[in-house]
Design a protein around this nucleic acid. Sequence first.
RNA 1: GGCCGGAUAGCAAAGUGGUUAUGCAGGAGCCUGCAAAGCUUUAUAGACCAGUUCGAUUCUGGUUCCGGCCUCCA
Length: 467
Amino acid sequence: MLKIYNTLSKQKEIFHPIDADKIGIYVCGMTVYDYCHMGHARVLVMFDVITRHLRRCFPKVEYVRNITDIDDKIIARAIENKEDIYSLTNRFIDAMHEDERALGVLPPDIEPRATDAMEQMFYMVKSLIEQGMAYQASNGDVYYSVRKFAAYGKLSGKNLDDLEAGARVDVNSDKKDPLDFVLWKMAKTGEPSWASPWGHGRPGWHIECSAMSTHHLGNHFDIHGGGMDLSFPHHENEIAQSEGANGGTFVNTWMHVGFVNINDEKMSKSLNNFFTIRGVLENYDGETLRYFMMSSHYRSPLNFSDDNLNLAKTSLTRLYTAIRGLSAGSAATDEVSQRFDFETRFSAALDDDFNTPIALSILFELAKFINSKRDKDIDQAQALAQLLIKLGGYIGILQLQADVFLKHTPNNTDAGLSDAAIDAKIKQRNEARANQDFATSDRIRDELTREGIILEDGSDGTSWRRK
RNA sequence: GGCCGGAUAGCAAAGUGGUUAUGCAGGAGCCUGCAAAGCUUUAUAGACCAGUUCGAUUCUGGUUCCGGCCUCCA
């Protein structure tokens, strides 16, 4: 029984799909004018975990994640670079896809772009104007009349009068109410623009998501998500637009992923304390990054630091060490895995609002069993290793050959000793050991240790891994 | 000012009204030529103050501190 925390009700709810044969989920994606940072990575990874689990729970899941490829920052950056907005956005869309693959994130089913959704936005804005919920101001911009939507504030728990009292500057005199937000912006000279019923211009930020989500998933769909910072005003405005234009409920379940923090402060572009995914990938592999993201619950803050990343790497190393040498073989269910209900408990953890820390803890239990069985009952160890790999696969980890993970260099470059050179050293060392020449064998091991190579002598020979 | 979260052992991070979270690090032991890995075992918690209860880290109220949103942001 799947339970999801709904921002709308501020509590965990049993998830009741609108149509159990087809789940619709929409996630607000990136604004593509720069490389993705760790905050984006968290949203990418967590909604990947979420959709992977949903796909196991339901026969069909339609996962839509948009790309915002037109907005003020994109225009500003394109002007700065003296480049066309499409060449800018295409470049960063490619970079985003590259980052996504490195993190083991599966592509969404549909990835619509704002610039392809103009007609759908026009349709929605028209509907809002016709119903008197939006108006074109004297400067030509079209605004949403927030006061016309009685339920405004239901997602963020905000009260219009409190908002107004606390509203900071930027009061646009063309707005009827300072809280009104823009649906369509008139183009200034030199700006990219689209012909619309209200003149040449471009869409406001919020309308694209209302238009694209309802276009692909219908006026009423199951889940809408994004980063915590989108709940207000972005998602609040989406509700106002979609429910204002179409009537009825827009989305049943709203999900928000917590922030990535640096020294307990939000990582953000405006604070300029962000780390890009590709920057971090120079020192840590994608799977370690992914594990790090899953090591805390998706709604909790996640503190980004080398210590925590290294912890993730060590943890993942333990899991891969458990399956090393055992990955081949049949996946027979065995008495131990049944007795301890690993798979049931693993799924139950994910069913409980996608509790990845619990799910991971079950993988460690499994690893412990494998380690304690491998010398006594290889078949059972084999079967448990298969199960560990299978459960890991449910959340997108442990799909490499153990040795590939354990021997890789941080950024998969060929720094330091080659594998062949390491094997040669190990051979020399083992010859020395066979001759009881421990001074030589220890010297070789020390040499390798300095190169970041750790040796492990086992009953079936010496294996190695990179630190 | 308004509205939300959070405070768990050395670090990271969950569940839970009474019984081992889990990972890393630490102690002891086994294994090993010695290590590493692994196994066994062990110590170290629940910001503070009240209340409810036979019993609270878990529920309620208050205090303090931290973070977020109210402005573009995942």
